[in-house]
Amino acid sequence: MNSNISSFQFKDDGEIPNNAKLPVVVYAGVFADNPNDIEPVFNRNGWTNSWVNGVFDYHHYHTNTHEVLGINSGTAVVLIGGEQGEQLELKTGDVIVLPAGTGHKRLKQSPDFSVVGAYPDGKSPNLKKRDPDVRAESLSEIANVSVPDTDPVFGSDGPLLHQWKAAAN
């Protein structure tokens, strides 16, 4: 599994909290040769409660867990980090790991777009939309989500863990 790894840090924009400490990590093309391996690899590495579907077309985030998304077919442009965030073009074989609180929204997709999602230790994600009234509660919940024990792609010694453990301290 070869991958071009990049990361992005997003600030709280007043509507989407994002994550003050942990960056979004993208593994470009890590499953390009075997997209059918995405879900089994996530699950083997302890990122479970997996599903196959798409990405919502409105800003949302999860305050109680991190999320990994693996593109198993097609392409999509996803806006990460709120309205002033980053537009990422994701394609078959790419993986993006969203720390708790990170806003994400699908802007466009190919007709065959499909994504596998999963969560560390099978946590059930909550679903939050832009709402200033739940801001303080959301920030508190995000701060309580710990760095996972494993990288969803590379297991116990993956690049995600190195970046997130360094950022969390």
Rank of each mutant, 00 (worst) to 15 (best):
G101Y: 02
E89H: 10
Y119D: 03
F113H: 00
F113A: 02
G70I: 08
G82I: 00
N43S: 13
K105D: 00
L90S: 06
N126D: 15
V95D: 00
N64C: 11
G93N: 06
R130M: 11
E89L: 06
V78R: 02
E86D: 13
D112P: 02
P111E: 03
Q87F: 06
L79Q: 14
W47P: 07
G101P: 02
G93P: 02
F42T: 13
H62Q: 14
H60Y: 08
K123E: 08
N53D: 15
V115P: 00
E67W: 11
V68C: 07
G46P: 05
Y58Q: 11
G103Y: 03
K108N: 10
L127T: 14
G85C: 01
V115Y: 05
I80E: 06
P132N: 12
Q84V: 05
G82W: 12
P132K: 14
Q87M: 15
D94H: 02
E83T: 12
E67I: 04
T75I: 10
G103C: 08
N126E: 13
D121S: 09
G101R: 04
W47A: 05
I96C: 08
R44K: 14
H59M: 15
D131R: 01
G85L: 00
S73L: 01
N72P: 13
N64M: 10
H104Q: 15
G70K: 03
L127F: 14
S110L: 10
I80D: 02
K128C: 05
V115E: 00
G82E: 04
D121W: 10
H59Y: 09
L79F: 11
L98M: 03
V116H: 02
K91F: 01
G54P: 07
D57I: 03
V95R: 01
Y58S: 15
I71S: 01
G82D: 05
S110H: 04
F42A: 12
G54A: 11
G82K: 01
R130T: 14
G122W: 15
G82H: 08
S110K: 03
G85A: 07
E89N: 12
N53I: 04
G93T: 02
I96M: 04
R44W: 08
K128D: 09
K91V: 04
H62I: 10
D94K: 07
T102K: 04
Y58I: 13
G117E: 06
Q84C: 11
P111D: 10
G85P: 06
H66A: 09
V55A: 12
S73G: 11
P120H: 11
K91P: 01
F113N: 01
T92V: 12
S73P: 04
L90C: 12
K123I: 14
T102R: 06
H104P: 07
H62Y: 07
